[in-house]
Design a protein around this nucleic acid. Structure first.
Length: 262
DNA sequence: GTATCCACAGCTCT
DNA sequence: CAGAGCTGTGGATA
């Protein structure tokens, strides 16, 4: 097929505004609205179409944040993959789908499943589960992501959000069992949802810094690559969107390091 | 010892 | 008002 695209290796930069399509007014802005971030030389939307095929990547950059976004699957293909996943994927239920927060037990507000190479495990909020063997569709999507990015993955976390009420709170992905040099590849199928990054130093009441959140919309068939060191400095969340009535399936492909430990 | 993680109620803001 | 966004809430885990 096509030659690999290695987004992180080509120098292409767009402002994060280029991909933040939602109205700026949604962001709480102080007087420094049009001040460009310090030490940020993003201004050239110029000759960046050096190679535009097959996937037009959009670079998303901020201080300590480095992502690439692209439409990986056309609508018909994405529709088909979504249907197949709806038939194939088996999600956790019962105790495995619960989490304890501030002393109370809740069902997580989405469905989750874990697939990957034999013997791999995934830990979510204290609960460790082993990966189910790859399904045909998950393998096919994994290989498509590898062809496009040049990265290989041995694990995928599947999250299904039945509608806009299902969501995921702000978090970073657990670095302990992840290969810190491997990007996380997030494939979205189904309903488009907002996706929000917030810098770790800009959270909470007495945040020491004012750093604008980075907001994206993850479209049907899209691929978002989160490159290091994004997960060190930025939390991300999938907030509630009450107007969204249709389901979304998200696949986050990762590389898990075998428990060699330091 | 200690830093991090999770989701929700309750509140404000628009 | 309704939706979105922010804050306070603690026991488990590494």
């Amino acid at each position: 097929m096509e030659s690999f695209l290695i987004p992180g290796q080509k120098k292409r930069s767009c402002t994060s505004d280029a991909i933040t399509r939602s109205p700026r007014k949604k962001i709480k802005l102080e007087k420094d609205e049009r001040m460009k971030e310090e030490k940020d030389e993003v201004d050239e939307d110029s000759a960046l179409a050096e190679f535009s095929l097959p996937v037009p990547w959009q670079k998303i950059k901020a201080e300590g944040l480095d992502c690439d976004y692209a439409l990986l699957f056309a609508k018909e293909e994405a529709d088909q993959l979504f249907k197949q996943l709806e038939n194939e994927v088996v999600y956790s239920t019962g105790e495995e789908a619960k989490v304890q927060v501030f002393g109370k037990v809740y069902s997580i507000p989405r469905k989750q499943a874990t697939y990957g190479d034999a013997g791999l495990t995934y830990t979510y909020s204290g609960v460790t589960r082993s990966a189910c063997p790859w399904t045909p569709t998950l393998e096919s999507i994994r290989d498509a992501v590898t062809k496009t990015t040049g990265q290989t993955f041995n694990f995928v976390l599947v999250n299904r959000y039945k509608d806009g009420q299902d969501h995921m709170g702000e978090h970073r992905d657990d670095e302990k069992e992840l290969d810190p040099l491997c990007p996380i590849a997030s494939v979205s199928l189904g309903a488009a949802r907002d996706f929000i990054f917030r810098h770790r130093d800009a959270r909470g009441k007495q945040s020491c810094r004012q750093i604008e959140p980075v907001k994206l919309e993850l479209a049907h068939g899209s691929l978002l690559l989160m490159n290091p060191p994004t997960n060190t400095f930025w939390y991300h969340s999938l907030p509630v969107r009450k107007k969204v009535l249709l389901p979304r399936i998200n696949l986050t492909f990762r590389r898990i390091v075998l428990a060699s430990k330091k």
